[in-house]
């Protein structure tokens, strides 16, 4: 494109020169801006990382940027010694695995039947699920319903209610609709039933879209805390990692802000290695986001295709 532009403008030398300087100035500004944008995005995370490895009382003075001033791992030891965090981590891992598998299966199967061209109730069933995207009962009716169904105060409230997501189904359905019908027909001529077609023919071809949806669902499960607060507040055995992090955050913002803890720091003298709520929270934050950040480089290609995949063709 750039080449075409240059050759086509050859007669207009003056203009070309002007454009070239304009171009250079623009590129400089644009690059600077984008680099700044990236720094703003990533700096806070690195800063939290530095705090999480810093000795507690020392951190209260502030002024830590990319590297810890007094290195210590005590914060992480404190975090991993908290029972809530351990239980929360176990529940979160469990719900992420179980929730992702069940939800993927449920969404895939529904997408499969909705993408069968011969299915008699195709359009009515689609409409039935599309409506759920626009009209939801809201917080309280849902909560009351779960109580009647005895889903509250249990682990299953994390997995069962959210299994089918109309949005994910629409993405998958579009993708499956793009698989040639002839594959299904020839399999059926050889005696395969619908379930065999689903398991042996459609699913293997849908790996990219399955990966994407699984990833979205997994991230959702990993990050959720509200259901833990709403349904399992009284049941510490079903707490989640993010909910524990939220409780830590709550404690810090109410109990200690800068000034108070600075005084505490002065009183204790800061000779030995100590922890403060601030650094413990930083450590917990990093520990909670670590799995996502660690997997991010490997998985990010699915994230992008995720938004565009459904639109490949129908």
């Amino acid at each position: 494109m750039a080449e075409a532009e240059v050759t086509l403008n050859r007669p207009l030398k003056q203009r070309k020169k002007k454009m070239a300087t304009e171009d250079i100035i623009f590129t400089i500004f644009n690059t600077t801006f984008l680099v700044l944008f990236a720094i703003v995005t990533i700096y806070p995370i690195l800063n939290t990382l530095a705090y999480s490895f810093n000795e507690g009382n020392d951190a209260v003075r502030g002024g830590i940027h990319l590297l810890p001033r007094k290195f210590a791992t005590k914060n992480y030891e404190t975090v991993f010694a908290k029972e809530g965090i351990i239980v929360g981590a176990r529940i979160t891992v469990l719900r992420t695995i179980l929730g992702t598998l069940t939800s993927l299966f449920a969404n895939a199967l529904l997408s499969f039947i909705l993408s069968r061209k011969r299915f008699l109730f195709k359009s009515s069933l689609s409409l039935f699920w599309i409506i759920t995207m626009y009209a939801s009962g809201g917080l309280i009716p849902t909560m009351v319903l779960f109580r009647y169904l005895h889903l509250t105060q249990s682990f299953w409230v994390y997995v069962i209610p959210g299994m089918v997501s109309a949005f994910n189904v629409m993405v998958m359905r579009t993708y499956m609709g793009g698989i040639p019908e002839s594959l299904e027909e020839s399999a059926m001529l050889e005696g395969a039933g619908y379930m065999t077609v689903f398991a042996k023919i459609i699913s293997p071809l849908c790996k990219p879209v399955y990966a994407t949806i699984a990833l979205f669902v997994a991230v959702y499960h990993w990050n959720s805390w509200f259901d833990a607060m709403l349904y399992n507040r009284m049941n510490p055995e079903y707490t989640t990692l993010q909910y524990e992090l939220m409780k830590l955050l709550d404690n810090v913002s109410t109990a200690t802000s800068g000034q108070v803890s600075a005084q505490q720091a002065a009183q204790t003298g800061g000779a030995s290695v100590t922890v403060t709520p601030m650094t413990v929270r930083a450590a917990a934050t990093i520990a909670t986001m670590a799995p996502i950040i660690a997997l991010y480089p490997f998985l990010q290609r699915y994230f992008v295709t995720g938004l565009t995949i459904g639109g490949v063709k129908e």
Binding site: Q259, T288, M289, P297
Partner: peptide, 27 residues
């Protein structure tokens, strides 16, 4: 790649980060 990384962090983490950034000793 950097730009859409924060999308995958929970709001709790984002709030913790915002808290730190605007606190008295924050950046």
């Amino acid at each position: 790649t950097i730009s859409y990384m924060p999308h995958f962090l929970s709001w709790i983490i984002v709030v913790a980060i915002v808290h730190d950034a605007v606190s008295n000793t924050g950046v």
